[in-house]
Amino acid sequence: MKKRLKIISRVMQLSMLGVAIAGPLTGNMTWLLAALFSLFISEVPSILRRDFRMVLPIGLNFWLVLALFLHVVGGYSGFYDNVAGWDHLTHAMTSSLMAALGFIVVVSVDKYMDSIRLPPAFLAVFIVMFTMAIGVSWELMEYAVDVLTGSHLQYSLDDTMIDLFFDSFAGLAVAAAGSYYLRTKSPDHFIEALNIEGATASLTDMRKKLG
């Protein structure tokens, strides 16, 4: 299962690379930057693993690459304009991803900062609010780009609202999954799996070397 997810991730990265190469060849430059940037982001977990010894769960890694893949390849193929609901799909995926990353951050904060204590019920609320806040910031960013460059990232109020609706849905889903996870397995297990301790240790190493 893990192997298969890894292979699929690689295939998706390859197709993003394909978009990055095909873009300049066919004169379609719109998605070149997005493809390159997404490729870089999809490599971030490996960079974290190599330099900071931090391990993201393989499922989350897969989800990250899948979201980027759908965005870049779908965008290049014109799915945003031709396939109904495509942007809602990618929106729900990216916002669930943000929610999952937010979940990792708050669980780690809860564990490693003595002055902060966040019970699971509060964590769930936090995740839902966090996802919605990210969603709103995202829409604001789209609006800002539209106003500054005259592009059309936002189609209409209906689209924006459905985006936000999906955001809140994704936030709820991750909050539910997260609290289920924390109830069945202890947070310590989760933290150990991420190897955050190793990550902070290598960070202090680096700081020592620099200072």
Partner: peptide, 27 residues
């Protein structure tokens, strides 16, 4: 409740809460 935050976390929470509440409100 059992929740404990420090100053900067509380600051961030207030900000995040406001933005998210506006989002839910409009939806």
């Amino acid at each position: 409740t059992d929740v404990r935050m420090n100053g900067s976390f509380a600051l961030f929470f207030v900000f995040m809460f406001t933005v998210a509440a506006a989002g839910f409100w409009k939806v």
